[in-house]
């Protein structure tokens, strides 16, 4: 069973004015679709991966034959990262984190304001293409990090709680070289209920 492109959970223009409709459309229907197609091409004819989720494959990336591994890291990572990214945003969201995640951000990362600043720095300072993440790491603690290109934190035993795409394709049509303005605007569409759900599941 081949991987398929998930539908956006909202209309392309739902995140305006923070993320413009044109960017959402191309990002989902061209970039994300491209990762899905290339992931399927990479795994075509490779035995042992039928029915596995892309997350499972990334968690056990060493099980992928070496000749296909980098393609799966790139395109499987691209598929998993974008699938999560769409779910972590929504119209009329933003605000502060809630419940268990809010408590953990306070106790482990020094509070929401400190977290926001450090996460924004991780996103702004990623050189080239990549992602900023809030994860639950292998020791069960929250951690802010960034990864290059489409590298998934799942490969290093982290569970992503929040992810921000800082490839230029994520913001260039609206923000051009002004990545920090995109990062600042993005807080207005973060779905903290979804992030809290991921955090609870990671701890479950």
């Amino acid at each position: 069973m081949a991987f398929t492109l998930p539908e956006l959970p909202y209309a392309c223009d739902a995140l305006e004015p923070y993320i413009d409709a044109r960017t959402m459309e191309i990002h989902h229907s061209k970039h994300h679709a491209g990762y899905v197609a290339k992931l399927n091409a990479a795994l075509e004819g490779v035995k042992g991966f039928d029915g596995k989720s892309v997350e499972d494959i990334l968690r056990n990336i060493d099980a992928v034959p070496e000749a296909k591994r980098q393609a799966v890291i790139n395109h499987g990572g691209g598929h998993a990262n974008h699938s999560l990214f769409w779910q972590l945003m929504g119209p009329g969201k933003g605000g502060d984190p809630s419940r268990a995640l809010a408590g953990a951000i306070d106790s482990e990362l020094g509070g929401f304001a400190t977290f926001k600043e450090k996460f924004a720095d991780a996103a702004a300072n990623r050189f080239g293409s990549g992602w900023a993440w809030l994860t639950r790491n292998g020791s069960g603690r929250l951690q802010i990090l960034s990864t290059a290109n489409q590298d998934s934190p799942l490969m290093d035993g982290h569970v992503p709680i929040l992810g921000l795409d800082v490839w230029e394709h994520a913001y260039y049509l609206k923000y051009q070289n002004k990545r920090p303005e995109y990062i600042e605007a993005w807080w207005n569409v973060v779905d903290w209920a979804k992030a809290n759900e991921l955090y609870r599941a990671a701890n479950g």
């Binding site: 191309i26 061209k30 970039h31």
Partner: peptide
């Protein structure tokens, strides 16, 4: 081939 080299003119 950074995306900023072509994104305005060619998108993806």
């Amino acid at each position: 081939v950074w995306e900023h080299a072509y994104y305005i003119d060619y998108r993806n």
